[in-house]
Each structure stands twice: as C-alpha cells, then as structure tokens.
Design a protein around this nucleic acid. Sequence first.
DNA 1: TACCTACCTGT
DNA 2: CAGGTAGGT
Length: 282
Amino acid sequence: MPSLCLPYPLDLSATLMSGQTFCWTQDPNDRFSGWIDGLPLQLHLSDDRLHWDNPAVGSDNILRYFCLDLNLPALLANRMDDPWLSQASQAHPGLRPVREERWECLVNFLCSSLKQIVQIRQINARLRASFGSSGSTFPTADVLAEAGEKALRTCALGYRARHVSKTAKLLSRNPDLLIIPPSLPTYLAARHLEQIPGVGPKISRCVLLYAYSRWDAFPVDVWVDRLVRELYFPRRRKPFRQQELEKWSLEKFGQACGLAQLRLFHWFRTRPDTRQRLAKGK
DNA sequence: TACCTACCTGT
DNA sequence: CAGGTAGGT
C-alpha cells in the first residue's frame, strides 16, 4: 500500500466531510473512500503517514489534492491578532483546503442551494451511480448534457436539475469555459463563471476557492453572514450584502481571506455553542 | 438599487 | 424550513 509522510497536519474528517468536496464517505474506523483525479481510493492516517489503497494514484496526486505544497499557517500568520481566527485555527489545525476537480466542483455547488452537506453528498453519489462510467467516476459534461433535465431529476436534484442540465450542455459545447488564466484577478474570474446558468456570487466563489485555489475568494452564504455578524458586529440585525462582506474580508484577512473563511466557518459550525443553539431551534 | 418570489426534496 | 439564483417589481 502506498503512503506518504505528511508535511503538515491533516484532519481527513474536517477536510473531506465539511462542505468543500462531496464525493467522500467516512467509515467507523476513519477510513475515507472517494476519488482523486478520477481514480477511486480509500485513505487512512496512521503513524503520521497518509496511506491509500490504489497504486494507480501517485503521491503527486495526493499532495496536489490536499494542497500539501501550501504552508497554511504562514499564509495567515500576520492575521492571528484576530482572536476568532486564532481560536478557529487552533481548534482544527489539520483542516486543509482541497483542489477539487473543476467540473465536479461546479456541479456540486450548482446542487447546493438550500441543501445540507449530507444531501449534496447523496446527489453526488447518485449522479455517479446513474451516469458515471465504470467505477462510478463523476459523469462528464457530455454525458449529463445527453441525459437531460428529466433524467437528472431522478437523482433528487429538484429544480437544480434545470441549471445542471443547461450548464452541462453549455460546457459540452464549450469545455474551455472552465479554463481561467491564473493571471485573471479573482473578481473577474468570478464574473466569468457567473455567465454559467445557475452560478451566482456564492457558487462562483466556492468553485474558485475549492477548485482553482483562489485563496482570496470569499464565499458568502447565510452561515458566513451569521458568523460575521455574531462575532464581529454583534449589534447588527440586518444581513450584509455579499459585496460588503467581500470587501470587509479582504481588509480583515488579506489575500488569504478565503482560507480564513474556511477555518472560521468550520469552527463556528462545529463549536458547542452553535450546536446548542441549533438544537434549540435558533 | 432594494426587496420579493418561485423553484424541488428530504429531514 | 434549509449553505442560492433568476426574474420580477
């Protein structure tokens, strides 16, 4: 079984199961089954090493997927005067950004509106089972375009099927749409992605953060809005506009604000405080 | 510009 | 009711 020595701590559960990627399942022994670069594999951690069971997957694929070339603490080091970011970072030191496959990431988030993480995972699994080729690889744009909206609805996509279908057709005609020059500023990259049906400000930034390694992409959803208001603007009642928070985040956390968001978000959602209030219904 | 609503399905 | 977007006023 291949393995590699980890240059940074890696928390597989936090990284794979908390809303960046949706193709993984976790078994009771903390083994994680999923796909990297279209290849199926199972991952597990032992003795500070990461092991996987598919020899066809190389170390380079793994390193790339978990962005293990990235010195995460260094990128946010000069922002640790912020007590919340500091606390969130200490709580989950092994939470890492991933580099998801672009097309899959786009479809995942097209399916994400008004859905819980678990449900998005189910949709991902159903799309693989119904339309993926051998080994349940994630279906290509061509295949989903061919399938059509009606067939997609059988995977419990609901009204999201319309967008996925239209997007699949668009992308199958023009695959280059997902190519974005690294030199293009993130706000323009977002604008580019927002030409795709069903892609608005939230999804464009998620895709840029989780598939394009744009660390300055700052997705704003209802949770991020709640988080920022509760922690940083406790008196404020009305929700922020996406643009306001984007501007604020860049000033607050700098070019790595997306990574700050990743950490704050995960910590906020999993801390006992939030869980309690969630259980009480508010 | 700033709200308002329809859109599917599962917990 | 829920981790949004598009199309309307």
